[in-house]
């Protein structure tokens, strides 16, 4: 067996494979959240958007037979949730965090309600690209079996990073996020910019959800997300609102998520549930390490309600 030849290398390899597989939804949600937060609002509802996107994507793929249509549908469903958040937050005396929590519960609840009939049936899944065909080692081949959405995510991270610096829209989003009075003084509608940024952020989170149900784990269940949408919010803070750093952080969280299954695959079953909790522990430690009561967060958009 080749597996025994690899020996201890199995664990890092499995974690690499896991990082690539598990990180994609983290990446999409965190890019969406990054865009939203750069405009000066927090959308905690992305967890609900993620789950609803997963359900919509799966259902669409099942009915149409095209997983890519499922991804699109998930994105559109996500942008509707983002638009709803953006619209409600425009109303006076509304707190974006409270609305986010409400929409998180609404999104997951709605997804469970409509998703009941789709738990059993098999929907067509997203194809993946075998970048590891040069290797004879099955672990490497499976590790490099990459979903196109992962690559789209990388391109998106770079594009966002570039756009924040080099386009008019990028500068306008950063301006509304950092100083609403300045944006108003220049005649931009702060509410409109935030509405659009939240809507676009919702789209990305919806696509992240479609990855969950259509690629990995690749089926629609109610416990699909297990809080990934919320962890992505923490991840954005860790990444200091930098899309490129979001990619690195998503890989890190993905690798942490793959720790438990990887250890199990080499026969270490003790503390399986403990290792499965690694991403949550990582969130906690990152938050403790990167947030201090004595200073404000560096790089945080000035208009965010958490930094104000």
């Amino acid at each position: 067996m080749i597996e025994t030849e690899l020996g201890w290398l199995t664990v890092p390899l499995a974690m690499l494979a896991g990082a690539i597989r598990v990180s994609t939804p983290f990446l999409f949600v965190s890019l969406g959240e990054c865009l939203t937060e750069k405009s000066g609002r927090i959308n905690l509802g992305l967890e609900g958007t993620l789950v609803f996107g997963a359900m919509t994507g799966y259902a669409t793929s099942y009915h149409t037979g095209s997983p890519w249509l499922g991804v699109l549908a998930a994105g559109i469903a996500g942008s509707l949730f983002g638009a709803l958040h953006g619209f409600i937050c425009k109303l006076p005396k509304v707190n974006d965090i409270a609305i986010g929590i409400a929409l998180m519960l609404f999104g997951t609840g709605l997804a469970f309600f409509f998703g009941k009939p789709y738990i059993q049936p098999q929907a067509p899944r997203l194809p993946s690209i075998g970048l590891g065909s040069w290797s004879d080692v099955p672990q490497i081949r499976s590790a490099l079996d990459i979903n196109p959405l992962f690559l789209v995510g990388i391109v998106l991270a770079i594009a966002l990073w570039w756009a924040f610096k080099n386009t008019r829209w990028g500068l306008i989003v950063r301006m509304t996020g950092d100083s609403a009075p300045a944006a108003r003084a220049m005649g931009y509608s702060v509410d409109l910019v935030r509405f659009l940024a939240t809507t676009a952020g919702g789209f990305l989170a919806g696509v992240g959800g479609a990855f969950l149900s259509l690629s990995y784990p690749g089926a629609w269940t109610e416990g699909l997300s297990s809080g990934q949408g919320l962890m992505a919010v923490a991840l954005v803070i860790f990444a200091r609102w930098n899309p490129l750093a979001c990619f690195g952080a998503a890989l890190l969280f993905g690798a942490a998520g793959a720790l438990g299954p990887a250890l199990q695959s080499v026969g270490i079953t003790q503390g399986y549930y403990f290792f499965n909790a690694a991403p949550y522990l990582l969130t906690l430690f990152i938050m403790i390490a990167s947030v201090s009561p004595k200073r404000s967060l560096k790089g945080a958009p000035g208009e965010l309600s958490i930094t104000k």
Binding site: R168, L171, I172, R174, M175, D178, S179, P181, A182, A183, A185, M186, G299, P301, G302
Partner: peptide, 16 residues
């Protein structure tokens, strides 16, 4: 009260 955007550079502030 300044109406410059703190996280943008001087050049970005002028251009936008």
């Amino acid at each position: 009260h300044f109406t410059l955007v703190p996280s943008l550079t001087a050049a970005e502030n002028l251009v936008i």
